[in-house]
Design a protein around this nucleic acid. Structure first.
Lengths: 181, 181
DNA sequence: AAATATACTTACTACTAAGTAAATTTATTA
DNA sequence: TAATAAATTTACTTAGTAGTAAGTATATTT
């Protein structure tokens, strides 16, 4: 993987997190990299190919992280998950899932499939963690682990969105609330 | 307010909830209403004027509803709030806030202001309800009412987004989890 | 050294978007 | 009924957008 290609993907990722998939154009990327529009089409013939690659790399990064956390205790793993996107706050970014989900029906099919795959992977990992943590009395909550996973994931994802709109303390305060299990 | 105008706003609202503000065009609306593009510009010179009106009407509708609920007991009011968007599920719609927030930075300034106003109103109402319910021992939770309001609002909003992506039981299951306070 | 593949640029097509000015039809009022 | 105002169409501009075909310079392989 050469430099230009990975820079394109990196920038596309930033653009998706900050303004969304439909709002960015190949011109946004080519301008910043000092290349021509067509150079991006050389690596990613269709915009959706670039979109798929951003999602794919996000999934890869998630799998690498959770793998790296696997020897931590359950509570520490939950903390890692919940603080995973702390650096997004001052940039006013949302996560890839939070960015793409509301406009899901406008996305090309290959991106829809990849996004579903990403969401399922995240929810499966979190459900598994909550199951083990509950069984071992590390966590205590009344919902099923899967429901609790939905709630935690949803609240986190949308706290990044609220951070864009309100620019206040929502994110920090939701985090504290979620850790309280 | 004449018929054409209100039909334009109604359709714009549907489009925002289903595909988002940036993804819909005046052509989508004019096609369905059998009018010309320019007729929409007569009522809403700029697309952002139409966007503002959709948000404004959403706020108005919220205020009317909460006003209508005010004689119900606290728990019933919470149920009303949490089930407010049940009809969106089979249409795969998200709420206006959930649709516009991720692309907040691409929105024109007048829409940003109106959206902030809407979110603040919702959170203020919900915080107030949770405060009163907690004080009267109707609800029991350990977070502050404001934090709890953030969590409930966030989880709900993003469960609609997840419903678009996963098309399964996320929404119902989050609802049940949230009512359990 | 010749042939070939890689990484682009140039220059374009086809299309869609928001927005506007002027003309025309439809409804309301004097 | 004439004058006026409201609602809309016609016809257009401007400014993008994704995508493509053909060419070129630079490496890499034979």
């Amino acid at each position: 993987m050469n430099d230009t290609r990975s820079e394109i993907v990196r920038l596309a990722g930033e653009l998706i997190r900050s303004i969304g998939y439909n709002a960015f154009s190949y011109a946004d990327i080519s301008r910043k990299l000092n290349i021509k529009n067509a150079a991006i089409h050389y690596y990613f013939p269709a915009k959706s190919d670039l979109g798929v690659e951003v999602i794919r790399q996000n999934l890869e990064a998630f799998n690498e992280r959770t793998e790296a956390w696997k020897n931590l205790d359950y509570r520490q793993q939950l903390v890692k998950y919940i603080t995973m996107h702390d650096s997004f706050i001052k940039k006013h970014w949302v996560c890839v899932v939070g960015s793409l989900s509301p406009s899901f029906d406008t996305l090309p099919e290959n991106m829809q499939k990849e996004l579903q795959h990403l969401v399922n992977t995240i929810l499966a990992w979190l459900t598994d963690l909550l199951t083990k943590g509950k069984d071992n009395k590390v966590f205590s909550f009344s919902e099923t682990p899967r429901t609790k996973a939905f709630i935690i994931h949803s609240a986190l994802l949308s706290s990044l969105q609220m951070n864009k709109v309100l620019r206040n303390d929502v994110y920090k305060s939701i985090q504290e609330g979620l850790l309280n299990i």
